[in-house]
Simulated scan of single mutants.
Amino acid sequence: MHVFITGGTGQTGPAIVAELVRAGHQVTGLARSDVAATRLTGLGATPVRGALEDLDVLRQAASAADGVIHMAYGGDYAEPEAMIRRDVGAITVMGEALVGTGKPLVVTSGTLVLPFGQPATETTAPDRAGAAAARLAGEDACLAFVDRGVRAIVMRLAPTVHGPGDHGFVPMLITTARTTGVSGYVGDGSNRWPAVHRADAAVLYRLAVESAPPGSVLHAVAETVAFSAIAGTIGEGLGLPATSISAERAGTHYVSPFMALLYGADAPATSTRTRELLGWTPTREGLLDDIRDGDYLD
């Protein structure tokens, strides 16, 4: 297949590009800069210069491909509405380029769109008033193409996609521990946190673009870990105590009240249906082992 990917030089994107190339697929990737273009070339992909705002570029690249993986998401988080408009605009243009072809459009979301406090499955209704509800506009835009002859697929990533060079939630937690002198968890730390290794997530993206049925909602979740165990492993590695932080103090202990909300969220999610549907079996080390043995505490 010829796969066009956005976000191919982000945190998870390079692993997906490398996985596709290893499997024999031709890959083109959106590149906003010379640095991004060079990285894509080094991964074995062909860069397409442009950004998510360049809708004509997206349209042409999607039209020329046998399938699309949409990873890119970002911008100014102080202007969420602008981010949503950009994301939906990009998905809509690429989806329209695939109408009537039966080609795959894999759009990235996250399991944090689901209700907290219960083991959420792929069929659990998302929480449209929740902390990550902004990602649902992209899910809706993607799945709207199912009835228009597109093999539209939503991929919900675990909040922690770990591996070398991670710059997500766990490194932020480690930075806070180093700054405050304690490795904190909210309350009793029993809240659950999904995770997946980047290499395992990349395999799932490849399986999805190759064979997931239209309308699939997939969960890239390898395990669910108690947050107290994450904090304890970080504390052990840094030589700091793992300490309970009250919900009242969490907003000032962590980077922001929003991050405190996420770190205190009980957000378990399962991937049983995803595994059965595509034969996906995560094989890489779990989050706690990666924190101990990887580059997190260097």
Rank of each mutant, 00 (worst) to 15 (best):
P115S: 10
T9G: 07
I84M: 14
R39E: 02
G181S: 07
Q118P: 00
V57P: 04
T272M: 01
D127W: 05
R32F: 13
P213N: 03
I16A: 03
P164G: 15
H162F: 07
T233Q: 13
I69R: 04
D66Y: 12
V113Q: 01
L30I: 10
G42D: 03
A212V: 01
A220C: 09
E236V: 06
V225A: 03
G184L: 08
D166E: 11
D140W: 05
D166C: 09
P115R: 09
D200S: 08
V146W: 13
F145V: 10
R22Q: 10
S33A: 04
L55A: 09
S33M: 08
P104K: 10
V3D: 01
D54V: 05
G13K: 02
V255I: 03
G24Y: 05
E248D: 15
R151P: 15
S109T: 04
V48Q: 14
Q26L: 11
R32Y: 08
S216V: 03
L204F: 03
E96N: 12
G286D: 07
V68W: 11
F145D: 11
A23V: 09
I153V: 15
L58M: 09
A269W: 06
T121N: 13
L240A: 02
D298C: 09
G117T: 01
T175F: 00
A134F: 13
M155S: 09
L204I: 07
A82V: 13
T12L: 15
R135E: 11
I234M: 06
P257Q: 08
A202V: 10
E139K: 04
S63G: 15
A129S: 14
G29K: 01
F169G: 00
P104E: 11
A36P: 10
T108D: 11
P159V: 06
E276V: 13
T243F: 06
A199M: 13
L20M: 05
A51I: 02
A199P: 06
Q60P: 01
E139C: 04
G184P: 01
S271F: 08
V217W: 01
S211M: 11
